[in-house]
């Protein structure tokens, strides 16, 4: 994948943003040394980028996360180094944003700088097997809510359609029409389709721009 200076991952709650963020940071690190991943989730106190802290540290990726992430202190806190993401242009960053429009509100203070610099990709993670985004219309409704709250228009889509442990190659293939319809209706390009790495080989000759995921176990 080619990465802009800032890659923002947004989407419906539970669409898979955090797993993709961690995997993209690993991928980016191979291309660019000064890679940062930021956990800017102000909605969900569980399943955080910070859960993958050890893996990220081992890979030499700097993690920007609230000191309260993953603790019992359930408050919508932003990390104190959040402005370094926009101020320090020597880094390339993957930003993991909380779910839905409420999660995207966290972008408020960063959005003007990100837009002004103009070197970003704002990606919407979609999963047709999530009950509230099962078709293009409902997915685009969520997309518009996120854009409105976050103040940054989307530039692309990631199809992460999956059924958890019951995901098969066919489950992914059955989502292709949906993803293409969302792309058509929104006018946004499909940047990649993400699949758990065990399905990668089976699907690599069937789908273009396939991105393999190593799923991050929850640490605690």
């Amino acid at each position: 994948m080619d990465y802009k200076r800032i890659t923002l991952l947004c989407g419906h709650y539970g669409s898979g943003k955090t797993n993709i963020a961690v995997n993209m940071a690993m991928d980016l690190k191979k291309q660019y040394d000064n890679t940062v991943i930021a956990d800017l989730d102000i909605v969900n106190p569980y399943f955080r980028t910070k859960d993958s802290k050890d893996v990220l540290e081992q890979a030499g990726i700097r993690l920007v996360a609230s000191q309260y992430a993953g603790t019992n202190l359930d408050i919508p806190a932003m990390p104190q180094e959040m402005y370094s993401l926009t101020d320090d242009r020597s880094i390339k960053a993957i930003l993991d944003i909380g779910g839905d429009d409420r999660g995207a509100l966290a972008l408020g203070r960063l959005a003007p700088s990100i837009r002004k610099e103009g070197d970003y990709e704002m990606l919407m993670v979609i999963n047709r097997y999530r009950p509230l985004t099962r078709d293009a219309a409902s997915t685009i409704e969520v997309m518009r809510e996120i854009e409105y709250a976050g103040g940054i228009p989307f530039t692309g889509l990631i199809n992460n359609s999956n059924l958890g442990d019951e995901t098969t190659a066919q489950v992914v293939l059955d989502s292709v029409d949906y993803a293409e319809e969302v792309a058509r209706a929104s006018g946004l390009p499909l940047v990649c389709t993400t699949v758990e790495k065990s399905l990668y080989e089976e699907l690599s000759d069937k789908l273009e721009r396939l991105f393999p995921l190593t799923l991050q176990p929850k640490i605690r």
Partner: peptide
């Protein structure tokens, strides 16, 4: 298979 959805337990309660 195709008529299954991926849900959080909390969402499953609400939808049910």
């Amino acid at each position: 298979m195709a008529d299954k959805v991926l849900m959080k337990g909390n969402e499953a309660i609400a939808e049910a």
